[in-house]
Simulated scan of single mutants.
Amino acid sequence: MSPYTLPDHELERLLGEDAPAGDATTFALDIGECCGRLDFRARFAMVVCGSEEARRLGELRGLVPTGPFAASGTKLQPGETILSLTGEAAALHIVWKTAQTLMEYLSGIATTTADIVAAAHAGNPDCAVVCTRKNFPGTKAATVKAVLTGGASPHRLSLSETLLVFAEHRAFLAETPAATLARLRRRWPERAIVVEVGDEAEALAWAGANILQLEKWPIAAVDRIKQQIPGTRIAAAGGVNAANAADYARAGAAILVTSAPYFAGPRDVAVSISPA
């Protein structure tokens, strides 16, 4: 099931970027009023994402969805249909590349996210995967949809919603960790306090936090600190991917923090356009 669909004004912006003054080639060839069909298919195995947006892009230009439809989150095999649209050739050509590329990039993020989630659950079924806010600027709504589609959660939707104390914050403090934690709990009593720590000494000093975020720690060190402070939730961050997620989960990390999906390669979407 798709978590949400991008709003029409955002989709119109995408269409406007690609055809700010219409499609010169289709216009010059005088084929715009011909009736045709646009088919999108998975070229390789993927977890599809963005198919709702692709369908809506077509509808905004008067195209009609027809035949099978694969909602975001559907696992597809090569050759399986994602979406088909019918209508005038002018609209087919304007929608074609924007819809294809959006699905390719979002499906790449969703598929890589799903791979990391599967690996984490192989190590510990209760381990959660969360994705950072390191998405390309301006793409947050789309990329968060892909993360959710792949089975993970956002680590931080924004600076406004979470208490995550970095060393860069602590550089300005002149008080004990206990005093800082008490002050945060007074000011934001409903928020969990997360503290990122760089070594075991820092971890022990900030053990009163709700969650300790271990940045680029070796797996053995994660296991060691979990044994020392079993009541504190551990989040492993930095370099987490499908190859090491199971090991971090087995070592005692309750949360895996990753940016890897945002740098995943697109999942190719095959396109065909034909006269109706």
Rank of each mutant, 00 (worst) to 15 (best):
A192M: 10
A90D: 12
E104C: 07
A24R: 15
K134R: 13
A182P: 02
P275T: 06
N210P: 00
L163C: 12
E88N: 12
Q227R: 15
L173E: 13
G138T: 05
V240K: 02
S51A: 11
L83E: 10
A235S: 15
P275Q: 08
I193R: 03
G252W: 12
S72R: 06
K75W: 06
A71G: 05
A142F: 11
D23G: 10
H155M: 03
L15Y: 08
S272I: 09
R267K: 15
H155L: 07
L184H: 06
F44V: 14
A19W: 15
T112V: 10
R170F: 05
V257H: 04
A142G: 13
A182Y: 07
L184I: 05
A141L: 15
L76D: 00
L102M: 08
R170L: 10
A276V: 05
R56Y: 08
A24Y: 14
E80A: 11
T162E: 05
F40S: 02
G67M: 03
A24S: 13
H9Y: 13
A21G: 14
V130H: 03
A167S: 15
I31N: 07
T139E: 11
H169Y: 09
M103W: 04
A24D: 12
R133I: 02
H121Q: 10
N135Y: 15
S160P: 00
A142M: 12
G198H: 13
V269E: 04
T232E: 05
E33I: 11
I273M: 14
D247T: 03
A24L: 15
T101K: 15
V48W: 08
T143S: 14
S160I: 00
G36D: 03
S84M: 13
N244S: 02
R191P: 02
P189I: 02
A245R: 07
N124K: 00
V269H: 05
E17Q: 14
E33A: 13
V147P: 04
D268W: 09
V197K: 09
I193F: 06
K145T: 12
H169R: 10
Q213P: 06
R185W: 10
A242E: 12
A42P: 01
L148H: 00
H155D: 01
A260W: 08
N135C: 15
L173D: 11
V48I: 15
L6F: 06
A99P: 05
G231D: 14
L204D: 07
T74V: 08
P7W: 10
P154Y: 02
D268K: 12
K134E: 03
S160H: 06
R61H: 09
E104H: 08
T112D: 11
I82Y: 01
C34K: 14
C49L: 06
I211M: 02
A171R: 15
I193M: 02
S72G: 14
P65W: 01
T98L: 05
G22T: 11
